[in-house]
């Protein structure tokens, strides 16, 4: 064995070292810690902790509310995969060209992402307000008065109303990733395709989309995970209500951990969330990474 060659090979790994150290201390260790908590019955503060094995996980599977919580996450995911991704891509392509006001349009489409949650919660609650909301006013103007309602108060519409806000807020994020991805496509490809007489849609299908493959992998993975982790919007707009109609995994985890003081159960939900994200995302990324 050639020692110096081996040393050289190991020394290459300093690239990974800073990330591994910081990540190990401030992410892997807390994850491990929370896994230990998930095996206990604990109120989150008192010195006593009771080991209960996997009971918290069994309880989660047994509790009928869990199914609704998961369903809400999946609905969220479905809408997020369609709308913010499509809108983000279309807007990115539209503002990728050299045109007047490019910066302004790009900034406007990204601006919802910039607005802090505290304002988003207030303004959208006003828009959906049953008494003086903008949405109801618009519907009445359009002669659709019978559709007016308390959009967040009706269990049938509450989740979708929050999702609509999520689409508004969530389009800027894929848009900038797609904008970055579009820069990797050589202009020559478009030029030669045009010379070959390809139509605009053909160019989109056969050049833009395939060459954005890595960007799609990133965007779709992130949208899937973000849909499972969605917290802020639900927390600030409906607080999981009415009843429990809009509870999702992360708010349900939060309620259990910090409001019901069931730290063990809450940590178990957190691990379910982490596991589900990995199960959905990792095989997908791996499959897409094989060439």
């Amino acid at each position: 064995m050639d020692l110096s060659r081996r040393l050289r090979r190991i020394s290459r790994y300093w690239f990974l070292l800073p990330a591994l150290v910081i990540y190990g201390m401030f992410m892997i260790y807390p994850m491990f810690h929370s896994f230990m908590i998930s095996l206990h019955d604990w109120n989150g503060l008192a010195p006593e902790m009771t080991f209960v094995g996997l009971r918290n996980y069994v309880d989660f599977v047994k509790d009928p509310i869990s199914a609704r919580v998961l369903r809400n996450n999946l609905v969220w995911m479905g809408f997020s995969l369609v709308f913010p991704v499509t809108f983000g891509l279309l807007l990115a392509i539209a503002v990728n060209r050299d045109m007047a006001g490019k910066t302004l349009y790009r900034s406007i489409y990204y601006s919802p992402a910039v607005l802090p949650m505290i304002s988003v919660g207030i303004i959208w609650a006003w828009i959906y307000n049953p008494m003086f909301g903008a949405l109801n006013a618009i519907l009445r103007e359009m002669g659709l008065g019978r559709l007016t309602r308390g959009w967040l108060a009706d269990p049938k519409t509450a989740l979708y109303a929050v999702i609509a806000t999520g689409i508004w807020k969530g389009t800027g994020f894929p848009m900038i990733l797609f904008l970055a991805g579009l820069q990797d496509i050589p202009a020559e490809l478009y030029e030669s395709a045009q010379i070959d007489g390809a139509g605009r849609f053909q160019i989109f299908r056969h050049i833009t989309v395939p060459l954005l493959r890595e960007t799609f992998v990133i965007v779709i993975s992130l949208v899937v995970v973000d849909s499972l982790k969605v917290f802020d919007l639900i927390y600030s707009m409906t607080w999981g209500g009415p009843g429990r109609a809009t509870q999702v995994l992360s708010t349900w985890m939060y309620f259990n951990t910090f409001i019901y003081n069931k730290a063990g159960y809450g940590s178990a939900i957190a691990w379910v969330l982490t596991a589900v994200s990995l199960i959905l995302v990792f095989p997908y990324i791996r499959a897409m990474s094989r060439r």
Partner: peptide
């Protein structure tokens, strides 16, 4: 009670 009150923010209840 004002209709659709369930998800109205407590502060917003004063507006009507």
């Amino acid at each position: 009670i004002t209709p659709g009150f369930l998800m109205v923010a407590p502060d917003d209840a004063r507006i009507p």
